[in-house]
Design a protein around this nucleic acid. Structure first.
Length: 499
RNA sequence: GGUCGCGUAGCCGAGUGGCUAGGCACAGGUCUGCAAAACCUGCUACAGCGGUUCGAAUCCGCUCGCGACCUCCA
């Protein structure tokens, strides 16, 4: 922790030096998914972004408690409920239990996270598992006079809160403006003011997810879960709260209000928000009907996808852009990322295998200095609000150096032994540990396949010695058709990559 | 309508007062039986119009275009 980390705090709208509440420790809370449906490409962004944040904080030596919730209660409107309304006897039989649905999509979410090589959070609490904590918190807020009950529902009194606290600061909202905008919302008539939000909702008879509470059967409001769970696992005030920009209002603004009243002080020191993934310039989202689900992305099974995209390619594509910029989806962009990622990864693997012998001094001082500079800058870039785009750019600056050493265009001795070692460690640390990349071939069934390919490579070699290029080309071309690319290396060996 | 943000080369995207980011594509070259890969070289942009400044893509103003949030949303 000798380095100073600066991050952009959405709350103050400034880059600030990060100072943890407890030295050496970081409490990080990130809004997790609502598991009422399949995760899509848009969801990938925050979880990859904050995975890197988590990884980097650990790299700096912090002990991170990373809490990411699963929202499995409340406002569902999809399959489960629809079946319930339609109610035919047959539908009744086929209908999914809410928990069944939640379980299915939670598993699918985990599957996606694993493929992205996201580290597991330290704690992944569910909203349904913390009903008691939520009720307790609502009680506290009521006791302090900032919430009121109507017909079994409890609402937070925003106007009262705004009179004494900076409501709207996080999202740049002005209470008067909000009061003016007209919206027809559920339960509007019950509220004192339309800006009030629900802490607890009374459940209509057909609502399956319901719990007992001091106010009757119902379910928790959307915002209270994050406040209750972050409080439980990270304390009344914690370091970093992350999430998508679209959650700034009303979700995060409400979290601040609730927690501030319940605990007498603001809950979070640093708010971080990632920007959206767009498609044709429009935000990817359920309401726009333009989502590409993760399952579709990885399989290529979607009308606008020209091909499947590997999770690592998607990860690379996301990290190539700074997290606070929008990122526009296109096949072209993903395909460019795929090529770039392969190039970077191959150079990385190559470098780890390369050795440098002989005199420890550099024969090319200028190059040596450049390499040192590129490596050292990596930390600076991360310390400047997690600029993974710049990190990747610098790694690419080093790729030709690595490849040139391998190809013999330059000697490894051009750079000093120290510099060589530094570069090796920098790649390993950054590519694998911090950016969290891994190779494209996940299925390591190499054994038999490798022997078969080795045989073919041997036959081809013989053919080449006999100058029987028809045979050698046939082997290479047919294998290429099957997705196995052969590469004649400089030193006469042959390597292959499987698509 | 309100609030906020963005407009960078063929495409994707960093940067943000002086120092050609990077990737992909494209063109030429080296290497190679050929190919692929790799390496070298080239392609030098910041929506428009004003202003501030010795100097602006970067600061300020206006105009045009786009988007996000204001409702569930990562």
């Amino acid at each position: 922790m000798t380095q100073k980390l600066f991050l952009y705090n959405s709350y103050t709208r400034e880059k600030e030096e990060f100072k943890p509440i407890t030295p050496g420790h970081v409490g990080l809370y990130v809004c997790g998914p609502t598991v009422s449906g399949e995760s899509h490409l848009g969801h990938a962004r925050p979880y990859i972004t904050f995975d890197v944040v988590n990884r980097y904080l650990q790299h700096l030596g912090y002990k991170v408690r990373y809490v990411r919730n699963i929202t499995d209660a409340g406002h569902f409107e999809e399959e489960g409920r629809e079946a319930e309304d339609k109610v035919a006897a047959k539908a009744q039989l086929e209908r999914m239990e809410p928990m069944e649905l939640v379980h299915k999509y939670t598993n699918l979410f985990h599957w996606g996270m694993r493929l992205f090589n996201n580290l597991d959070p330290s704690i992944e609490p569910t909203a349904t598992g913390h009903i008691i904590e939520q009720i307790d918190m609502i009680r506290k807020i009521m006791d302090k006079g900032y919430a009121y009950e109507v017909n079994g529902s409890v609402y937070f009194d925003v106007k009262k809160y705004a009179a004494g606290y900076p409501y709207g600061k996080l999202s740049g909202r002005i209470l008067e403006d909000l009061m003016e905008t007209t919206r027809e919302l559920d339960g509007q008539e019950e509220k004192k003011n339309k800006v009030d939000f629900a802490l607890w909702k009374s459940a209509p008879p057909e609502h399956i997810m319901r719990w007992n509470s001091p106010w009757g059967e119902g379910f928790p409001g959307w915002h209270i879960e994050c406040s209750a769970m972050s409080r439980k696992y990270l304390g009344e005030t914690f370091d970093i709260h992350g999430g998508g920009m679209d959650l700034q209002f009303p979700h995060h603004e409400s979290e601040i209000a609730q927690s501030t009243i319940a605990h007498d002080h603001a809950p979070v020191n640093y708010w971080m928000h990632n920007n959206m993934i767009t498609i044709n310039g429009k935000k990817m989202g359920k309401s726009y009907n333009n989502v590409i689900k993760l399952t579709e992305l990885f399989s290529g099974n979607h009308p606008i996808l020209e091909q499947p995209y590997h999770p690592m390619v998607v990860r690379f594509y996301i990290l190539q852009t700074h997290y606070r910029s929008t990122l526009d989806f296109s096949n072209e962009a993903l395909q460019a990322s795929e090529k770039a990622f392969r190039r970077l990864w191959e150079a990385h693997e190559l470098l780890q295998k390369l050795e440098r012998n002989g005199d420890a001094d550099a024969t090319d001082k200028e190059l040596d200095a450049k390499v040192v500079a590129f490596c050292k800058e990596l930390d600076d870039f991360m310390n400047d609000d997690f600029n993974t785009a710049k990190v990747i750019a610098n790694l690419f600056e080093l790729v030709p150096v690595i490849n040139s050493i391998k190809a013999g265009h330059i000697s490894a001795a051009a750079i000093s032994a120290d510099t060589f070692g530094m570069m090796k460690i920098a790649f390993k640390t950054y590519v694998e540990d911090i950016l969290g990349m891994q190779g494209l071939q996940m299925q390591q069934d190499s054994g038999k396949l490798d022997r078969v390919l080795s045989l073919l490579i041997e036959i081809r070699k013989d053919a080449k010695v006999r100058k029987d290029f028809a045979t050698s080309d046939q082997i290479r071309n047919k294998l290429a058709e099957a997705g196995v690319m052969l590469k004649d290396e400089k030193d006469g060996t042959v390597t292959y990559t499987i698509e």
